Amino acid sequence: QIFVKTLTGKTITLEVEPSDTIENVKAKIQDKEGIPPDQQRLIFAGKQLEDGRTLSDYNIQKESTLHLVL
């Protein structure tokens, strides 16, 4: 699982696999929060994550925290 922290300070927990794409993660966030993926920007280690890449591409491991910017 990974954590996604929103600007409001809320933390969302997501069940993911390293092979999941960023697009996939955004879809999971939409399921939980109702935020359309095209409004979501995910930041990890100061980098904006691209939809077509996977979590493992960015070396995002379990218990990692991503930041969600709208």
Rank of each mutant, 00 (worst) to 15 (best):
Q1S: 11
Q1R: 14
F3S: 05
F3N: 05
F3D: 03
F3M: 06
V4G: 01
V4I: 14
T6C: 12
L7E: 14
T8C: 15
G9M: 04
G9H: 05
K10P: 05
K10E: 08
T11G: 03
T11C: 15
I12T: 03
T13M: 11
T13F: 08
L14G: 00
L14I: 13
L14K: 00
L14C: 04
E15T: 12
V16L: 07
V16F: 15
E17F: 11
E17K: 09
P18S: 10
S19G: 10
S19Y: 12
S19Q: 10
S19E: 10
D20C: 08
I22S: 02
I22G: 02
I22Y: 01
N24Q: 14
N24D: 13
V25P: 00
V25C: 05
K26D: 00
A27M: 15
K28Q: 10
K28E: 03
I29Y: 02
Q30T: 10
Q30S: 11
Q30H: 14
Q30G: 07
D31E: 13
D31M: 12
D31R: 12
D31G: 10
K32T: 09
K32M: 11
K32I: 13
G34M: 05
I35T: 07
P36C: 10
P36T: 06
P36S: 08
P36L: 07
D38Y: 12
D38F: 12
Q39W: 10
Q39K: 10
L42D: 00
L42N: 00
L42M: 03
L42V: 03
L42K: 00
L42W: 01
I43H: 11
F44C: 04
A45V: 06
G46Y: 05
K47T: 12
K47G: 06
K47F: 11
Q48T: 14
Q48G: 07
Q48S: 11
Q48K: 08
L49N: 00
L49W: 01
E50R: 07
E50G: 04
E50D: 09
E50C: 11
D51K: 04
D51T: 06
D51E: 09
D51S: 08
D51F: 04
G52Q: 11
R53K: 14
R53M: 15
R53H: 14
T54C: 08
T54W: 04
L55V: 08
L55D: 00
L55W: 03
L55C: 06
S56A: 13
S56Q: 15
Y58W: 03
I60R: 01
I60V: 08
Q61L: 11
Q61R: 09
Q61H: 11
K62I: 11
K62C: 13
K62R: 09
K62G: 15
E63T: 07
E63L: 12
S64L: 04
S64I: 05
S64E: 08
T65E: 07
L66V: 08
H67K: 07
H67E: 11
H67D: 09
H67N: 07
L68W: 02
V69K: 08
V69G: 06
L70T: 11
